[in-house]
Design a protein around this nucleic acid. Structure first.
Lengths: 237, 237
DNA sequence: CGTTACGTTGAAACTCATCAATCGCAGTGG
DNA sequence: CCACTGCGATTGATGAGTTTCAACGTAACG
C-alpha cells in the first residue's frame, strides 16, 4: 500500500511537485496518471504587467501575480468585473455571449493546458467537474457581492471594502485583527474602474482613510491597513 | 431500435411530458430511467407573489413566474443580484459564503428535487454536470453584465437596459425590431433595488422614455416597448 | 533637465438622492 | 353608495455626493 503510494508519488511530474500547494485546487482532483498526461501537454508562460492575456481557449493555473477581467462599453467606459489572485484557476468553459478581456496587472506566471484535454478529463472524473462548478459558483458569489457594492454602497464604503478584499486575497492566512501591508497591484484608474468611481474620488477617499488613521500609504502603491476594525466598520455590510 | 425508443418514451413520467419544453434544460441530460427516479422524488409547489422561497437546499425547475435574488446590507439597503424567469433552474450546489434570498415576484410554480439525488446523478452523468456548470456560467455572465451597468451606466441607460433585458427574458423568441408588450413583474422599488437607484429616479426615467415615445405605459405595470431601436440606442453598450 | 505617467487637491457643475406633496386605485367598512 | 385608508407611483423643489475640469506634485526615465 505504501509502496503503491510511493509509486504514484513517483509518477507525479516534477514540474507539479513544486506546485503542490496548488493541488488543493483543480489539479488535486486528478490521479497521478492524469496529472502526468496533463503536465505533458502543459506549458509555462510569463506574462508582463499590462499585457492582455490571449483568449485562445486554454485553461491556466495562475502561479503568481494578479489578473483583472474587464468588460467594456462601446464608448470606452470600462468596468472591472473580477480579479484572479494567485493561486487561482483561469479560463472559461463554453463561450460567453459577451466578450470579457483579461489583462495582467502584475507580472504573471501561468501553467496552461489545452482546453480539450481538461474537458475530456472533466467527463472522466466527476470530482474535476465538481471543482470547476464550485469555482464558477465562487466567482458568481464574488460578482454578486460586488453588484451589491456597486449598486448600494457609497464611495467610501466601496474603497474600504475594496482594500479588505485585496488584503484577504493577497494574504488569505491573515489573522483577522492584525494589521496587514501589501503592494496594491492596481493603479488608481483600475480601482476606479472596479468600484464604478473616478480616479479623483478614489484618491480622495484613500486620503480620508489615511487622515483618519485607518490606513497608511507609503509610495502610492504600498498600503498598510492599520485598523482593520475601522475599515470593517466603514465597509457598509 | 424504434421499439426500444418507444419503451424509453413510455418510461418518461407523465408529469414530465407536459414539461417537455423544459427538457432542453437540465432534465434533458437524463435518461428516461433517471427521469423516472427523479420524478418519483419530485414535488410540485405553488408559491405566492411576495413570498420568500425557503433556502432548504432543494433544487427546482421554475415552471412559471419570476423570482428575484437579493443581497442585503446590514442597515437594510438591498440589491437585487439576479432574476429567474420561467423556465429556469433554481438552486445552488455547495453553500455560498454569504446569504442570498430568493423571493417570488409573481405567483410561481416549482418542480422541486432533493439535492442529494441530483448531486448523485451529476456524478453518474457528465452531461448533467456540464449543464449545471453551463448554467452557473450563464448566471456569472449576467452578473458581470450588470456589474458593468451598475458601475458605469447612467440612470437612463440603466432603465433602458433593464427594459430590454426583461423583454428578452419574458419573450425569448421576439423578433428583434418588432415592438413588445408585457407585464412588468416588478414594482418600481424592485427596479430601483436592481439598478442601484431610487424609485423616484426610476419613475422619472420611465416618464422620460414615455414622453420620448420609446415606450408606452398603461396601468403602471403594463409596458410596451414601442421603439426597440430607440431603447437600444439609449442603453449604453 | 525635460518629458511622461500617475497621483493629489481644489473649485465648479451636474447627476441623482432626499424630502415632500399629490394622485390613482383597490379594499374596507360605515 | 361613498368616505376612509393604504399602497404604489408620479412629480416638484432642494440638497448632497460625486464627477468634471483644472492645476499642481512627484517619481521614473531618456
Amino acid at each position: 500500500m505504501a509502496a503503491r503510494q510511493d509509486a504514484q508519488q513517483a509518477d507525479v511530474p516534477a514540474i507539479c511537485k513544486s506546485c503542490e500547494a496548488r493541488q488543493d485546487r483543480l489539479c488535486g482532483a486528478l490521479s497521478a496518471r492524469q496529472l502526468a498526461e496533463l503536465a505533458e501537454a502543459s506549458s509555462m508562460h510569463e506574462v508582463l504587467a499590462g499585457t492582455e492575456l490571449p483568449d485562445d481557449g486554454t485553461y491556466s493555473n495562475l502561479l503568481s501575480g494578479v489578473v483583472k477581467l474587464t468588460r467594456d462599453l462601446s464608448d470606452g467606459r470600462q468596468q472591472i468585473v473580477g480579479f484572479h489572485f494567485a493561486p487561482d484557476f483561469l479560463g472559461r468553459p463554453f463561450e460567453a455571449k459577451r466578450p470579457i478581456k483579461a489583462e495582467a496587472l502584475t507580472n504573471v506566471a501561468l501553467c496552461s493546458f489545452p482546453r480539450t484535454l481538461v474537458d475530456r478529463m472533466a467527463n472522466e472524473t466527476p470530482e474535476l467537474g465538481r471543482r470547476l462548478l464550485k469555482h464558477a459558483l465562487n466567482e458568481l458569489d464574488d460578482a454578486r457581492d460586488w453588484m451589491a457594492a456597486l449598486g448600494r454602497k457609497t464611495a467610501s464604503e466601496k474603497v474600504a471594502s475594496f482594500l479588505l478584499m485585496v488584503a484577504r486575497n493577497i494574504d488569505p492566512a491573515h489573522r483577522p485583527a492584525s494589521s496587514i501591508s501589501f503592494d496594491l497591484p492596481l493603479t488608481r484608474a483600475d480601482i476606479a474602474d472596479f468600484l464604478g468611481l473616478t480616479i479623483e474620488t478614489v484618491s480622495r477617499e484613500l486620503s480620508r482613510l489615511r487622515l483618519d488613521g485607518a490606513i497608511r500609504i507609503a509610495n502610492k502603491r504600498q498600503i498598510s491597513l492599520a485598523s482593520i476594525a475601522q475599515l470593517e466598520a466603514r465597509c457598509g455590510d
